[in-house]
Structures are given as structure tokens and as C-alpha cells.
Amino acid sequence: MNRRELIQRVTFMLGGVMAAPLMAGAMGEVLNSEPGLVADDLQERLLAEVADIIIPATSTPGAKEAGAHNFIIRVVRDCFTKDEQKKFYDGLGKLNDDSKSKFGKGFVDLTLPQKNEMIEDATVYNKDFFREMKNLTITGYFTSEIGATQALAYDPIPGRFDGCTTLEKGQKAWAL
């Protein structure tokens, strides 16, 4: 196989993956227009606790303090289809049920090591939920005021551009 063929094969595979989300919109797929699912109190607390395991407080605050769960609730409610919403909250419910089976307590009431263990389990047994939750948590956290200005370097009006600077020791990634 020559190099050109190789490139085309790679593309073919990649193209298939990338085209899918685009085409969903393009085909004018029927989506839901009723109001989306709003998290109940337990779900809200669960989301905050799970998010805080995914992005915990370190030298900077974690996802819970940054309010990442509020972003997650909003996006799931307004930007997810009905099926996606149900799948997401079913996954969250499964995590809580699994906590009860394993430790006899809901996720919120677990110790920190137990919570970590449950999320570790979820990366294998509740994979889709974990992936979705992780993506939402990362976006929710790093675009929150705390995440953007404390965990990252935030400069809304740089005023100039230098395309190649020296990276300072310990320099944080830009928020924007």
C-alpha cells in the first residue's frame, strides 16, 4: 500500500466518524420540543458530588465549588434530546444504585475513597454515563468563573499577539 492509499484509508475511517454528528442535524432529524428534564434535589446533589470527584479541589477549587453541576443541568435540560436526557439520568441513577449495592449507602453519603472507587467502577461498568459526565464536567468547570480564572490563566482582552513566547515554569494554560 503506498502512502497516498494509506492517507485515504485513514480518512475514510475518520470521515465516517466525523460526518455522523453533522448529518444528524443535516437530515433534520425529529427532536423533542417539550420542556427538558430538570434535575430533582437528589439528582442535583449527585451531579455536584460526582463532578467534584472528576475535578476535585486541589490548590484550586473543584467542580462543586465552581458550580459545574448547574451548567450540566442546563445543558442536559435544553441541549439534549429526550432520549439523551433519559439515558443520562438513568446512568446517574445506576451510579447511585451501584453505590447502595456495594456500600449500602447512596453515592452522596459515601466516604471520599468510596466515591473514588465508585467512579473508578463507572469507567468500566457505566461507561457511557461516565464519558458524558466527564465531558460536561470538564467544560462546565473550565468555563466557570472559578475554573477559568483560578485553575487557568484568564485574559479577556490581550491587546496584542505574540505567536511564540517562552513557556514560563508552572505557566497555566489559557482559559480562552
Binding site: 470527584i53 472528576i54 475535578i55 476535585p56 486541589t58 484550586t60 473543584g62 473514588n116 467512579i119 469507567t123 468500566v124 461516565f130 464519558r131 466527564k134 470538564i138 467544560t139 473550565f142 475554573g147 485553575a151 487557568l152 497555566k172 494554560a173 489559557w174 482559559a175
Partner: peptide, 20 residues
């Protein structure tokens, strides 16, 4: 930056620090 991606199973303090 923070959207650089991480190992599919990664979470927690190490992942957070890597993304910053």
C-alpha cells in the same frame, strides 16, 4: 488547553492538573 483531551478512564486531581 483544557480541551486537549485525556485518557478515556482518567479523572481526579492528576487529570485536572494535566488539563490546566
Amino acid at each position: 488547553g483544557w480541551n486537549q483531551g485525556s485518557d478515556a478512564k482518567a479523572f481526579g486531581a492528576d487529570m485536572k492538573e494535566a488539563l490546566t
